[in-house]
């Protein structure tokens, strides 16, 4: 895929994935630790934290933070 095609796909993805209720990066961060604990423990993610999951699908930067956090948690 050319760089232009990749940008076109990305911007259309950004536009068409708009949901009526979304959270931003800072709100996502507020629930980050709880979300990571649920992932690590394999416990079901409760309803209010589902918004974190859908934010992560759209936000590569928060996703990168989550991946690093999950790795850091293994150090214990």
């Amino acid at each position: 895929m050319s760089e232009t095609d990749a940008k076109l796909n990305a911007v259309i993805g950004m536009a068409m994935s708009v949901l009526p209720e979304e959270i931003g990066c800072d709100d996502c961060f507020d629930y980050f630790a709880a979300y990571a604990d649920h992932l690590t423990n394999g416990t079901p993610v409760p309803e209010p934290l589902r918004m974190v999951g859908s934010h992560l699908e759209r936000c590569a930067f928060c996703m990168e933070e989550l991946e690093l956090l999950l790795e850091a948690m293994k150090a214990r």
Partner: peptide, 18 residues
Amino acid sequence: GDSRFVTWALSIVIRVAL
């Protein structure tokens, strides 16, 4: 208190470093 304290602390250090 909705997460382990250490998980919360690690989330902060990750964000600071990134």
